[in-house]
């Protein structure tokens, strides 16, 4: 899995772009990268998941932890590009209900 940082865009959000498989072996990279941005004072953070090809329960757990942390810190955390199997996993675990999503065509799949 690769985590790419994109600078603040016109909407005021900094974006972390996740590429590849987010699983039991590497989901901690997502947690670490996002918590590091929040700790550095980023107030509006987006996780772009359009490049995620595989998501397991450890990856879902990482997302839960980030949502909990952002809420506790009073930060705005959004997600984009969730589709395919990762979306089905998030729906089956009910976690999609607590994720704020950008309105993109991918989010409707």
């Amino acid at each position: 899995m690769e985590v790419q940082l994109r600078e603040v865009d016109a909407t005021g959000f900094e974006t972390l772009r996740i590429l590849g498989e987010c699983d039991l072996y590497n989901a901690q990279h997502l947690t670490r990268a996002a918590l590091e941005r929040l700790a550095r004072g980023v107030t509006h953070l987006r996780i772009d998941m359009a490049g995620v090809s595989y998501l397991d329960s450890t990856g879902v757990g990482a997302i839960i932890r980030l949502v909990q942390s952002a809420k506790k810190m009073g930060r705005e955390l959004r997600f984009s590009g969730i589709s395919g199997t990762p979306r089905r996993v998030l729906v089956m675990s009910n976690i999609i209900s607590i994720m704020k999503e950008d309105a993109t065509p991918e989010a409707k799949k």
Binding site: L24, A27, Q28, T31, D56, S57, T58, G59, V60, G61, A62, I64, R65, V67, Q68, K71, V89, M92, S93, N94, I95, S97, I98
Partner: peptide, 23 residues
């Protein structure tokens, strides 16, 4: 719900998402 989103058992660690049985 957010507080209960992940199951944390006595031996849970960072590689346990705590949601696999839900799905």
């Amino acid at each position: 719900f957010l507080a209960l989103a992940s199951w944390r058992g006595p031996r849970s660690d960072d590689s346990d998402g705590g949601n696999s049985l839900v799905a």
